[in-house]
């Protein structure tokens, strides 16, 4: 324990509206409040003494920010849904199996019970396991502030390494996942440092839609290969209009290797990431073939 935790202040408002207002008001002042959900990222930073002294805004008690609901446009997942819930939610399992799968690979049980999807998004680590899935599923993020909500496409959410279009006065309210198109196969694979309680070296999520034997739409999203989670349009294009064949897969993999530029870091090497990312694309295509 390296941070002076006993000196930290927590603001806790009775409902979402007041919470949003508190956040918005503080954002203009000298000490903007920092939202706190499950705390699984925040407390790691605090324990390592890596955060400046700041005040927190508790969200954990806000049941308005919980729930997975069926809407005409898709499924809305609220900010505080934990990965433990998402891996067993019947709706998620049925319609977004890749998200259920990704959720089951986050940390281990203890982490899944506390880690929230909005926390994963807001933390913005390029290794966040749910992020490629959200990208591949064309998720839209609902941001709220007291004055007004707005929706942004997840593909435009991040602006750089751990930075996003979210203003400090905004909360992530929910995520809308559009209904998957008929004939879409979802794929998720995490290659981590070990089989559980692992951070991804490379993580991939794809959705490939095949109609009349040809690919009509493809999303290939990867984590841990760039400063943010990324989609690889050139590789997606390689599949469009094609039949799913090993040749198409290896062409997609080739283009992918040309367009991403991962780095060496504490968990893996650029060369390894590049190789594995290519293989994962091939595996995703092979999976869609089945």
């Amino acid at each position: 324990m390296r941070a002076a935790l006993s000196r930290l202040r927590v603001v806790r408002e009775p409902n979402l509206a007041m919470t949003a207002r508190a956040l918005e008001e503080s954002a203009e002042g000298p000490r903007p409040l920092v939202p706190m959900a499950g705390g699984t990222d925040l407390f790691v930073y605090l324990n390592a003494g890596a955060l400046p002294e700041q005040d927190y805004l508790d969200l954990w008690h806000l049941d308005e920010l919980r729930g997975v609901i069926d809407t005409p446009g898709g499924v809305r997942i609220h900010a505080l849904e934990t990965f433990a819930n998402l891996r067993r939610d019947p709706l998620v399992k049925r319609r977004y199996p890749a998200l259920a799968e990704a959720s089951s690979w986050v940390g281990a049980r203890q982490i899944q019970n506390r880690a929230t999807i909005a926390g994963n998004i807001a933390n913005g680590s390029p290794a966040g396991d749910s992020l490629p899935v959200l990208l591949a599923l064309d998720a839209r993020i609902r941001l709220v502030r007291f004055s007004a909500p707005r929706d942004v496409g997840f593909d435009t959410f991040y602006t750089g390494y751990r930075t996003s279009v979210r203003h400090p006065s905004e909360l992530i309210h929910s995520i809308l996942l559009p209904w998957p198109l008929p004939g879409t196969r979802q794929y998720f694979r995490k290659v981590g440092t070990r089989l559980a309680q692992a951070i991804s070296k490379v993580v991939i999520a794809t959705t490939i839609t095949v109609q009349k034997g040809r690919v009509t739409r493809a999303r290939i999203a990867l984590g841990s290969v760039a400063a943010t989670v990324v989609r690889v349009p050139s590789a997606e294009d390689a599949l469009l209009g094609e039949k799913l064949t090993p040749a198409a897969a290896s062409e997609a993999a080739r283009r992918l290797r040309e367009s991403i530029h991962p780095i060496d870091d504490i968990r893996s090497t650029a060369a390894h990431r590049l190789r594995v990312a290519g293989r994962l694309v091939e595996l995703a295509v092979a999976d869609a073939l089945r």
């Binding site: 407390f43 390592a48 281990a108 049980r109 203890q110 982490i111």
Partner: peptide, 24 residues
């Protein structure tokens, strides 16, 4: 560890296992 990795601090919070080093 104080970083959520080792689980030595696991307690049940409302019946669910959590790492108490990461819970305020």
């Amino acid at each position: 560890c104080g970083e959520g990795e080792c689980g030595a601090c696991t307690v049940l919070l409302n019946g669910q296992p959590v790492n108490s080093c990461l819970v305020p």
